[in-house]
């Protein structure tokens, strides 16, 4: 065997290692700079992040630190200016075309000419699912977000919180292995939020989905996540990554336990430190 072939072999092995079968998202040295009229905005700078199959990863940080942008890069709605990213081992574009993820936007973005059921069925129509399959999935996911009985309403007849829940049902109906959620519960009141947190956690535990979740709320991040990524602004970058050792099946009372409070404390410290950076 020649030296050249040997070098090729080790390269192959290394490549295989980095693209392990469980790796859902692999981000290396990723940066994104928006060119605006007021000069460049460094939305993301030098991000390194690995997300494994079954992880629940929360992104937390002050607004403007690039959380949405990072999620959009993963979803192939934004192209990075430097660095590399793979989703399910392929480029984000390919992953998007494979319908690898479901995306919940910060606003509900429902189509006002479709009923709630019609909105949830929209992605299913595009995927070409049969009518009966669509109906089943719509009913199941509307039930999950407590919107049964509102199928025939139009979005503008519902409150903002209900609209947001419908948009979550719409993303879940796709039944993706990867869920990208941008502050999905930000507009909801505490009770509904707790309920949906529990539902989401149950769904995640049951289906071994991978979730990337943007939030403003420290308790929410700690309660849901296996991994919490603290970001800080200007330029947007990762300040701290906290692996949570809380058990996978949690109930809401875990929020009073010392382990929970310890993690929450560390997140808070990270947010504070990230903030003081800019002063």
């Amino acid at each position: 065997m020649t030296a050249l072939a040997g070098a090729k072999d080790t390269e192959m092995v290394e490549k295989h290692k980095s693209a392990s079968p469980d790796r859902v998202i692999d981000i290396e040295k990723l940066s994104l700079t928006f060119e605006t009229n007021d000069g460049p905005v460094h939305a993301l700078s030098d991000i390194d992040l690995k997300i494994e199959q079954g992880d629940f990863v929360s992104f937390i940080g002050p607004s403007g630190c690039g959380k949405t942008t990072l999620l959009r890069v993963i979803a192939d709605l934004e192209k990075p200016t430097a660095g590399s990213i793979t989703v399910n081992g392929v480029s984000p574009e390919e992953a998007r075309l494979n319908r690898a993820y479901g995306y919940v936007f910060q606003a509900a973005a429902l189509y006002s000419w479709r009923t709630i059921a019609g909105n949830v069925a929209l992605p299913l129509e595009i995927m070409g699912l049969s009518r009966s399959e669509r109906q089943q999935r719509v009913a199941r996911n509307l039930e999950l977000v407590n919107l049964s009985g509102f199928e025939k309403k139009y979005p503008w007849q519902l409150s903002g919180g209900m609209q947001q829940r419908a948009s979550i049902a719409r993303a879940l109906a796709v039944e993706p292995d990867l869920l990208l959620m941008d502050e999905p519960f930000g507009a909801l009141d505490e009770i509904v939020r707790d309920h949906l947190n529990e539902q989401l956690l149950q769904l995640w535990a049951k289906t071994s989905k991978t979730v990337a979740f943007v939030t403003h709320s420290i308790p929410e991040a700690v309660f849901l996540s296996t991994k919490i990524v603290v970001l800080c602004p200007r330029p947007g970058r990762i300040y701290d990554v906290i692996e949570s050792d809380l058990p996978r099946d949690r109930t809401l009372d875990i929020r009073e336990s010392p382990e929970f409070l310890k993690i929450a404390h560390r997140v808070r410290e990270g947010l504070k430190a990230g903030h003081s950076y800019e002063d």
Partner: peptide, 24 residues
Amino acid sequence: TMQRDLMRTYASGYWHTLVKLRLP
């Protein structure tokens, strides 16, 4: 933009986007 991004996340083709979003 958000309405179009939504269609993009569904990997919706030209005709689907035309009929289900842009024409309405």
